[in-house]
């Protein structure tokens, strides 16, 4: 205790901090009234862009705890001018069980057709764990909340979206 010099010095120092903090603005965030500002990469919930899904099942297979359920059937459509009718996969069911999901983002990463996106949306708590199994219509609704990805640091490589857009725009006349 004599390390402090005066007896009670350590306590006084602490109380001084408390007193100083008392005069400052508090750090409390008024959550339900003011929604938090979340970065675009924030992993809140997974949204599904149904039109892009080709039922390749990569996401369901790569998921570490298999929480994605996919059902589909094949449809044959006659294409004018083609010799044979084409077959295509039609998505019947796409569901993610968020009570199992570990929020790792592997499904979003492996999707070759950009059908899955992260969104910072997080207000989907339920009273019953079974209600956390969300079907494709609910997953589709979240698409509206997907933010644009942030621009990359100029020292690094540009984002793949940026590179793809540049390629699509064609060579730049210089």
């Amino acid at each position: 205790m004599n390390a402090n010099g005066v007896p009670g010095g350590g306590l006084a120092k602490g109380l001084a901090i408390t007193l100083r903090t008392m005069t400052r603005r508090s750090h409390t965030q008024q959550y339900p009234d003011v929604s938090p500002e979340l970065p675009p990469r924030s992993r809140g919930v997974i949204a599904l862009l149904e039109e892009n899904c080709t039922v390749c099942m990569l996401c369901a297979r790569e998921c570490p705890d298999w929480c994605i359920y996919i059902d589909s059937h094949k449809e044959t459509a006659a294409v004018p001018g083609a010799a044979r009718p084409r077959q295509r996969n039609v998505l019947d069911r796409f569901a993610i069980d968020f009570s199992l999901c570990m929020y790792c983002g592997i499904c979003v990463e492996v999707c070759p057709f950009d059908a899955l996106y992260w969104t910072p949306e997080f207000e989907y708590a339920e009273y019953d764990i079974r209600d956390l199994l969300h079907e494709k219509d609910r997953l589709g609704e979240w698409m509206a909340t997907v933010p644009p990805p942030p621009a990359h640091d100029p020292n690094g490589e540009p984002a793949k979206e940026e590179a793809a857009a540049r390629k699509a725009a064609g060579p730049v006349a210089s």
Partner: peptide
């Protein structure tokens, strides 16, 4: 330093 001053040399904590 706020956290530091608050607890590191607090007499009760030391005891």
């Amino acid at each position: 330093p706020n956290l530091d001053n608050l607890i590191r040399r607090n007499e009760i904590f030391l005891a």
